[in-house]
Design a protein around this nucleic acid. Sequence first.
DNA 1: CTGAGAAGCCC
DNA 2: GTACGGGCTTCTCAGT
Length: 725
Amino acid sequence: MRNVLTADSQCGLLDSVLDTPVSESSWTERPSSLRVGRRANPTRHSSVVRLVHDSGGIPYPVGDVVALDVETDGNKVHKGHRIFCFAYKSNLGERGFLRASKASFAWALRLFGDASKTIVMHNMKFEFHMFMAEGIPIFDYFEKGAKCHDTMMMSKVLNSTGWDHDLRHCAKAYLGRRTEDKDEIKLWLKENNKVKYIRARNGRKLTFKDAPNEVVQNRVMWDVDATLDLYYFFKPRVDATCPTLYETERELVYVCADMEQHGVRIDITRAKTLREQALKDIERIRADIRYLLGDLEVPRSKKNKRTGVREEIIEIVEEMSPASNAHLVAAFKKMGIELKYKTKPKKDKRTGVMKGGGSWAFDEYAMIRYVSPPIVRIIRDGGEDGWPAEKFYEEIHVAIEEHDLDPREMLPPLIIKWRELSKMVSTYYDNFIEDCVDIEVGPDGNEYGILHCKFNQAEAMTGRFSSSEPNLQNIPRIMGPRECFVTRKGRLNWHLDFSQVEMRMFVHFSRDEHMAAAIDKDIHLYVATRIYKKPESEVTKEQRKRAKGTGFGILYGSGAETQAETLTKKGLPTTVGESTKIVAAFHREFPSIKRLTNSLKAELARKGYIENPFGRRYYIPTKFGYKGLNYMCQGTPADLIKAAMVKIWKFIRATGSRVKMLMQVHDELVLEVPPVEVYKVIPATIQMMEDRVSYFVPITVDAEVTRRRWSEKQDPTDLGFVFNN
DNA sequence: CTGAGAAGCCC
DNA sequence: GTACGGGCTTCTCAGT
């Protein structure tokens, strides 16, 4: 195994670092609770790997560029995971490996506060969280001019359409590093986690912290080494192509870190109540289905290991699972429903290659086609309005009776409801209940907690954020989950959203005068008047819906077939012939769109990429040129809101405001505001988000406010707030 | 234990 | 000839 600490030492400073004696006490200060795979006395191999000890006198780097990386016992700071060691390497070749201790954090404090240093990290938001948990005031230092750089964000802005911006991929792609060394620690964990008695002894899975010193050191030194080299690789390229975009993303890391750290407040009791209710409903549906179906005979195929021949085994299933395709096939067959619809192959996101498809389909659209109109109507209405299970249930029974339908028609709607409910439980309620921290009991006796999610800056190709662990960007608009999101005590949550922003971008890039004139009214209605050549008063609701669907379809680059399918799925039965006509009419009325698409394709062919107004480049393979329009219309608002977030965050901090940013949902920003600050902050914020001059149509912001629950979002004027711009 | 496929939630 | 944009999570199943 290569020892990174003693390899290629380039200067005397390094030697002085390495010669620092390892004190016995520094190791006993924070003894690991574990001795797994570790030598009893680490000092014994200090002749092999010499350490910068953590008992004071840690050498401070002379080099002005310092790469930093931490190792932790988990990746959730709010769950108590902490740094157990970290490492650095400077541009002068100085390196060090530090165990977590008062002294080493004091060292880090000095470094982060040192405006003469450039600190380089890969995914620095993580380091920020971890060092802030140790008391290092990262945000204050930002304001005092400390410069932290993030090679992950550099990678992202240089290649927004790339997927992998983690250290492993960057080091491999840009530095030609071999990644086997980096994986050593993972392999160690994998091996040792397999050993049951080791896990049993500790009562938990092993983490990086449990790995032997050498393994940890090799890993963290590999990381800082790669990070530093990546910085020098990326820096000139960023400076040459997109310095402003990078600066926004870099500063935005602080904003995201702040949002993630603050978190949103959850009414845990409400989540528990809703969960219980959903489970009750599920139980009832389960019983009904059981009554309908009885036992199911489900064929299973297994390959014989020896012969390689497929064997069919019949499994008797008493309780079917609505998520199991095999169960559904058996259930439909038993009900005597002839299976008709198969799943379609889907494009692999990365390669664009068609994958999958060919199984029997049981998604909602397929289900709807198996039942008669009264049931379809209930499924549709119930879905749109978010009926409680009880009502849904009643309606189905009534419909069966009134229309004298075959009771077997109950199966599809019951499955749909079952899936919907279990989705609510496992994706939303369960996570709300389990992931909350800082739990407290409110004056109403309810339990409240804080939910921290991740906002990822380097995931979406267009430049949007994504959210995960848990994802706060896909909370259902109807039904229970939004009831669980509550304001903090003495705060209002303000939801500021860009109005019709994708459509506005559409108009901006196409320079369509007529659409521009209608954008502040009802754009979809206007499009309908043009497509159908009718005055507004004669446009039906359906026609408007079709026009709206067509607008989005074109924005997404879709053809007539998909349009027809999408509209039909949405309850507007449309043939391919009809949709072809509508799409043609759209292009006839708004020829600027075709021109725009073509010019973007031409730009792509010429340069190999297209670039949005913020300098974000999309390297799109030519065959995916149809995506260009969408990337521009989706990516531009993404950068617009990112820039606004940085401005707003700086404003909040500069004015000593107590406003906090809570979350971002693509075209919407949620701020937590003390009532006394509403007039000071909200108009200013809206102004920072809006842009009434740079675009062909003004970019405007709508505000809504929640006093208590997200599900009860209101118009601010209804609460007595009046803004006159 | 992992990966693929299906489903379903958001903008 | 080509075809609906961008995300995340959960569940099941089959083969490792």
